[in-house]
Simulated assay, not measured.
Amino acid sequence: MKSKFLKGGIASVILLTTVAFTSTKREVRVEESTIEWTGEKVTGSHNGTIKLQKGHFIFEDDEIVGGEFIMDMSSIKVTDLEGEYRQKLEGHLKSEDFFGVEKYPTAKLVITNAAKKANNVYGIVGDLTIKEETHPVTFDLKLNDDNTATTKLTIDRSKYNVRYGSGSFFDNLGDKTIYDNFDLDVNLKL
């Protein structure tokens, strides 16, 4: 009986060792990667950038199986305005009304599942954390031949306690209403 358990234990160790060596972690080159955001309101839209602080993908047999990405929320920039208006909007986005970057300096995405669809496109399921609120997100991610990974995803800010100007929570905002969804256009360099 001891022999069976010993053989089973050795086989388990060999299997786990083999699996561990087929997984690779590929760091994202943050200085060459970009995250662009677009937020809309009744009277128009604004856009800008957020810097990636660090990130990596986990590959098994050359296919994405996981990953983790940290965004530097204090790096939020507005790119469609200049001067005083730009400074005011950037300050407001960093304030408690929106992302509260002094208290919540980072946001995090953890890939919990990745399934290859076709032509290097993966269906991704992940947990996104903003302001200590975590919710699942799903999106498609394309792994390109030029060692980049690209995606476009839409985030409902109201799920993360970012409710300023939201018509879902406040009445009579009229043309001051800011839509709950904002879009991210992500280009990661591996």
Rank of each mutant, 00 (worst) to 15 (best):
residue 137 V to M: 09
residue 146 D to Y: 03
residue 170 F to V: 06
residue 32 E to C: 00
residue 177 T to F: 02
residue 122 Y to H: 05
residue 7 K to H: 04
residue 139 F to C: 03
residue 99 F to N: 00
residue 81 L to G: 01
residue 95 S to R: 05
residue 65 V to K: 15
residue 167 G to I: 07
residue 10 I to N: 12
residue 99 F to W: 02
residue 93 L to Q: 01
residue 5 F to L: 13
residue 70 I to N: 04
residue 80 D to N: 12
residue 94 K to I: 05
residue 1 M to I: 06
residue 7 K to A: 14
residue 151 T to D: 00
residue 164 Y to W: 13
residue 13 V to S: 05
residue 126 G to T: 03
residue 85 Y to Q: 00
residue 76 I to F: 10
residue 69 F to L: 05
residue 66 G to I: 09
residue 111 I to V: 15
residue 4 K to Y: 10
residue 164 Y to L: 04
residue 135 H to V: 00
residue 180 D to S: 11
residue 122 Y to Q: 00
residue 18 T to M: 11
residue 136 P to D: 10
residue 157 R to E: 10
residue 6 L to C: 08
residue 3 S to A: 04
residue 135 H to Q: 07
residue 51 K to T: 06
residue 58 I to W: 01
residue 75 S to I: 12
residue 33 S to G: 06
residue 26 R to S: 14
residue 57 F to L: 13
residue 90 E to H: 00
residue 94 K to R: 13
residue 169 F to K: 15
residue 38 T to P: 01
residue 74 S to M: 08
residue 169 F to H: 15
residue 138 T to Q: 14
residue 141 L to Q: 04
residue 95 S to F: 06
residue 43 T to D: 06
residue 77 K to S: 13
residue 135 H to S: 01
residue 146 D to I: 07
residue 52 L to V: 11
residue 17 T to Y: 13
residue 146 D to M: 03
residue 187 N to Y: 08
residue 139 F to D: 03
residue 55 G to V: 02
residue 189 K to Q: 14
residue 127 D to E: 15
residue 129 T to I: 03
residue 50 I to F: 08
residue 75 S to R: 10
residue 54 K to T: 07
residue 115 A to I: 15
residue 80 D to M: 07
residue 55 G to D: 06
residue 61 D to C: 12
residue 121 V to G: 03
residue 18 T to K: 06
residue 2 K to I: 02
residue 8 G to D: 10
residue 143 L to P: 00
residue 6 L to E: 06
residue 93 L to E: 02
residue 100 G to R: 02
residue 165 G to K: 12
residue 42 V to K: 08
residue 67 G to I: 14
residue 129 T to E: 10
residue 136 P to I: 06
